[in-house]
Structure formats: structure tokens, C-alpha cells
Design a protein around this nucleic acid. Sequence first.
DNA 1: TATGAATGAGCGTTCATTCAT
DNA 2: GATGAATGAACGCTCATTCAT
Lengths: 199, 199, 199, 199
Amino acid sequence: MGNTPQARRGDTRQRIQDVALELFAEQGYEKTSLREIAERLEVTKAALYYHFKTKEDILISLFQDLARPLDELLAWGRQQPRTLETKQELMRRYSVALESALPLFRFMQQNQAAMSHLRPGETLKDRMIALSDLLRDPSAPLIDQVRSLSAIFVMHTSLFAMQHLDAGPEEKQKAALEVALDLLAQAHPQERPGTPDAA
Amino acid sequence: MGNTPQARRGDTRQRIQDVALELFAEQGYEKTSLREIAERLEVTKAALYYHFKTKEDILISLFQDLARPLDELLAWGRQQPRTLETKQELMRRYSVALESALPLFRFMQQNQAAMSHLRPGETLKDRMIALSDLLRDPSAPLIDQVRSLSAIFVMHTSLFAMQHLDAGPEEKQKAALEVALDLLAQAHPQERPGTPDAA
Amino acid sequence: MGNTPQARRGDTRQRIQDVALELFAEQGYEKTSLREIAERLEVTKAALYYHFKTKEDILISLFQDLARPLDELLAWGRQQPRTLETKQELMRRYSVALESALPLFRFMQQNQAAMSHLRPGETLKDRMIALSDLLRDPSAPLIDQVRSLSAIFVMHTSLFAMQHLDAGPEEKQKAALEVALDLLAQAHPQERPGTPDAA
Amino acid sequence: MGNTPQARRGDTRQRIQDVALELFAEQGYEKTSLREIAERLEVTKAALYYHFKTKEDILISLFQDLARPLDELLAWGRQQPRTLETKQELMRRYSVALESALPLFRFMQQNQAAMSHLRPGETLKDRMIALSDLLRDPSAPLIDQVRSLSAIFVMHTSLFAMQHLDAGPEEKQKAALEVALDLLAQAHPQERPGTPDAA
DNA sequence: TATGAATGAGCGTTCATTCAT
DNA sequence: GATGAATGAACGCTCATTCAT
């Protein structure tokens, strides 16, 4: 049940996005043809054009859907005080976001090139810069700024570079988060939480 | 001298690689056509086929050339004792390698997808795994393994994610290296160099 | 009142024809898509198919509407005696018809090719031949037949070839009519109106 | 002999132009597909792209070739004194040019729409205006300017509107030329050749 | 009276590749 | 060591048209 033409009516747009995400993530945007997408959906190429004006439109629509959790995280972060605790909470929330956004990130990583021609504000890079601006203090020593930046990418590491590590996904994710939080803390030497400044 | 046909004789193969590297790094492998490469070199497409059997052959040849410093670094690392000092020295050498391999890395990052179909041992990912295997201790706590892995990617961060940071390239590189060395050291708590085991 | 959906109810067929005439005249039949027509009317393409069976049907309906004044002129002409005076009156009436049929003629000129596949009697060319048959005398010297034919096209000249002339539209039209009447008169040397045959 | 692949080598570009002219004239530019052209030449569509950058490029190349005699006529005309004799000679030469340019004119008439998007100077209309500027005197009475303009179009009439006339092509052409010369003469009342100005 | 959703055919164009010269 | 000429396959896209609702 579910796969008959009747059952699918009305959700074609969504199904196009699903298949496109899958294929773009797998093979990249350029290598994925509309024929491929259409065939997998058992519709014609022309049907895709009923729902999206161009191939790039599919890409953009995917990006917008997938970037929303990130945008919400950024919006939240901008309204918080710029304390270590905020930054660490940002990181924790980022960790959760990543968890449910693995396809997104696979997709984005494969398609940086394709997306780099889009209007500013429509790339992942813009979000990364925005996030890093919330984490680092431009007046701090450079090394501490690097620590803050690195925290972000340590999180990504857990998704992609640790695939061959012999441990469960949650464990890896938790470990990555810990390292990231550590880096953030090291970037705030005078304000370590739970550490009395004192003698 | 210079740009005349005569002066170029004999180095066409090299010139193809140069232009291809440039374009692949800029636009990605799929989006770069042989016509484009040929036009920029002011030769015909057919000329490219005298020097390379296929388009993919150009990609592979580039990768092999560019991966050599990395392979040499790995070969060196495998012959060293697995001490913290070795790992940190690996990192320092890696830092130097990266410095002169910025186009390589741009290229690789843009073309992960294109390269992922190649035979094992012909991808950047393989090198990264090999490098990480030299840095981490499989019997160590997971968090320390993550620290080791992260060190590598912190180095990359300095090349790509820090472009909008307000500092000179060498400064950034140095800061990234420091953070990376720090992470490696933290992954070896019982053996901090210069730190007596004490008590 | 005016442009609201309610005010438009019932006249959609007419509005389709108006927009189609405009676009066919501007860009030609082949280059004008039903999507374009539908968009300009703010209805869907399918709506066009409620009012017309095919795209060509729109073309034919336009032609029939627009050719009616011409057909009436021809019907009138056929019932008159074949005198110079009749011919000149035909020309005068043709001049008036053209005046109010500028879009028609733009449209016809752009779409001769598209209309040439239609059934006989459905082309502008048929009307032109019919008109010329009323004007020329098959037994007259060839040059006089040419004069008669030319009279028709001189009228067209005033609409299209004289656009860059520095004069008002009515002036041009009047001048063209004069030249045309002149040509008709020259084609009837023995019967110049107002010229006594006499000794 | 003649039609084998070997015999055709080297003249493909020309053959494309020939077939394209034929088909564009017959069916119009928009309705003629590159597939059709390629099939008639027994080559692939891609071969067309070796010789022309776009479909429009074929159109332009045709126009340029075909417009050359006209451009030469205009160049000659611009160097002559602006007398009636010059104008009549222009007309005679135009008549000859038309004779050998029937395909051109069929083609142009079918493709006015397609050509009207081209750059100025690349349309037939531009040539017509240039020619009419050589024939008419902007300070003359409007009716005489119309006579001069009409002369041009009378010539065209002989090619297209007289197809159903019962006479040989040369006869028709000669008759049309006579009418045209007449019109030019009537536009110069004070300077009729062979007519003494005198008392 | 219309629309939403889709189709099948075809379009102009570009691609990597081949091969005789 | 390279070119000129071409191919076959595929691409993104648009078209006129259909039909259940």
C-alpha cells in the first residue's frame, strides 16, 4: 500500500524533493539528471517542470527546507548574551540539529560547488560564517578564535571523518560534542564554568 | 621566451594539468568541459586526447601528482615510533605540506564526488584515514581518538573556514597548528612532553 | 468595474482572441506559446482548451473575424459593374478597411507561413487574388494589369513601409490612396473619368 | 558521383546553408528544426554545431550572404548624383538583383519575425529604408515620396503577388520595372527625361 | 467554466570521444 | 604532436494537448 498512483496524488512535489535529495547527496547535483529523478519517481521529466521551474529550483528548495533548522538556531543565538554558556548551548543544539540533518550535510558537502553560484544568503557557507560569528570574539587572541571556529568543524568530523571508528553513532556524537565544548571553554580562559577564578 | 608556441613545445601535458587543476578547483570536475580547457590553452580538444586517454585520466593524473607529498608524509610517519612527539611532528609537516598545496585542497574539496568512484587507494579519503590511523590509538578512550582526528581537520579549517578572519595567512596557519598540537597533547594525558609524570 | 474576475465573466473567449492577436502579431504564431497567452490572461492553459479545440483553432477564428470586412468588400465588389469608378471605389473602401484593420494586417504579415497550411479560402492570399481579380482586366495589356495589382500593395506600403516617413498617419494614408487611384486610372487609358472621350 | 561522403568533404558548411535556406524559405525559421536540416544532409545534429555556433547563427550567415548584392547596390547608389536617371538605374539594377535573389526574398518574407530580433543593420527592413532614402527626396511633396517608395514594392509585387498572372516571368518582371520607372518619373515632374522643360 | 496534474514528443545545445590526416 | 570533422548520447527545457475533478 502507499505506492499506487492514487495514493501518491498530491505529494509529488515532496516526492521529487526526497528523490532529488537522495540523488544529489549520492552523486552530486551536476551528475544527477532530471531523467534519473523522473525515472525513479515513475513520472516524466515534464512532470518535474510542473512542480519546479528549473533544476536549480529543486536545489534551492531543498536547501531552504534543510537550512531552516540552522536558521532558527542562528536566530535563537543572536538573542542570547554572548557568554560561554550560550556558546556551549549553541553547540549542544547544533549537535542535535546535525543528528537529524545527516542527509542535509551529505547533500551540502557534495554540492558546495553547485551552490556557490547562488545568491548570497543561499549557501551553507553563509550559515557557517554566521555561526562562527556567534562563537568567536573578534577581540580575543587569534588562537582562541581558531579554537572557537574549530569547535564547529569538530562536530562535522563526527559525522563524516569518524565513519571508520569502531563505536556507536551516539557515542561518537557525544565525544565530538565534548571535544567541541572543551575547545569553546579553552577559548574563554578567564571564565571557565564551575572553575573558581580564585586563588 | 614566454608565451609563444615555440616556447611551449614539449610542455603541453604539463600545461593541460595546470589549466585543468585551475578549472576543476574553480568550478568542479563535472562542470568543467574539455572544450573549456582546450580553449584556454588555445589548442583543440583532440590535442588533449593525444596526452590523456580520457577526461578522468586528467583527474587521476592530477590527483597522483598532488597526493605525492601526502604519501611521502605517510611513509615517513609509518617508520616512526608512535609517540606524541612523532604525532606532533607529523602535524607540523602536514602543516607545511598544506601550505604549498592549497590549490590541491581546493581541487579535492570540489571534487570529492567525482573522485569517489575511483579505485581504492586513489581517493583523498584513504589518505585521511591513513593519517588518522597514525595519530590515534585505537585502545585509547573514544574522546581522545576524536581529539586526534579533530587535529587534522582543524588544520583544514585554517585554509577554508578562516578566510574571513582578520589576520595574515601565516598567523592563521600558526594558530591552527598550535590548536592542533594542543589537541594531540590532550589526547595523550599521561605523556605530556616536558611534563614530568610527577609525583 | 473593469478588470475584476466578475467583470470578465463570459467574455473569456473574446479576451483570448484579443491577447492572441496581440501576441501573434508581435512575435508570430509559432513563437507564441499557449502558456504565454494563458499567463497574460491570468488563467490556466487548460482554460484555453475549453474555448478552443487547438492552438490552430485560435488562429483560424482570428482570421475569420478579421477577414470578414474584407469578404464583405469583395462581395460588394462582385455585384458592381466593372468600371474604373467601381475599382476606385473599391480602393477607397479598402483604404477605410485597412485603417481599422492595422492589427489584422500586422498579424497576417507575421503569420503568412503559419496560415499557408490551411484549407483554400482560409488565407489572406486568396482574398488578395480575389481583390486583384476585381481590379484588373485579364484582356488588358500586361503592364496595365500590373498597375492594377500594384495599387493594392501601394496601400499596404502606407501601413508598413512608410513608418519612418515624417508625416501624420492620415496624410500618409491619403497620399497612398491618391497614388493607388492614379495607378488604377493609368490602367484605364481610354476611360479616364472626367476626361471626355471626345474628339 | 557527387553525393558520396568523400565528395562532400569540405563543403559541409555550404551544404548546411543551402538546405537551411531551402527549409527556412519553405516552412519558416521557427518551424524548421535542426533535426530536419541534419537529416536531409545525412549528418547528425551535432555536426551542425561544428560549423555554426547556434541555429540563429545559420540564419544570420544566410542573411549576410544574401544581403550582399543589396548592400553593394546601396553602396553604388550612395556614390551617384541624386538624379532621376540614377534612381531609375538603381531600380533597373534592383530588378536584376531580385531576379537572382528569389530564394532570398522568399526566405526573408517568411522570416521577418525571426529576423526582427537581430541587431540593427542585420534586417532586410534596414536595407529597404536605405534604398528608399536613395529614391525619395525628403523635401518633395508627400505624394511624390510615396510614389518613390511604392516603386520598390511594385518590384516585389512582380515576384510574389503576380504568381497567378498568365504571363512569362521575364515579361512580368519587365512590366513591373516599367511601372516602377514610371512612378519614379512621376515623382520628378519637373525633370522628366526626354521631356523638354521648355515652353 | 475552469483547474491541477500530467504526458509524449520534440527542441536547441553540449558533451566526451574517435579517427583519418 | 596536433587538427578538422564528425558522432552518439544525453542534457535541461518547452510545447501542445489531455482528462479527471
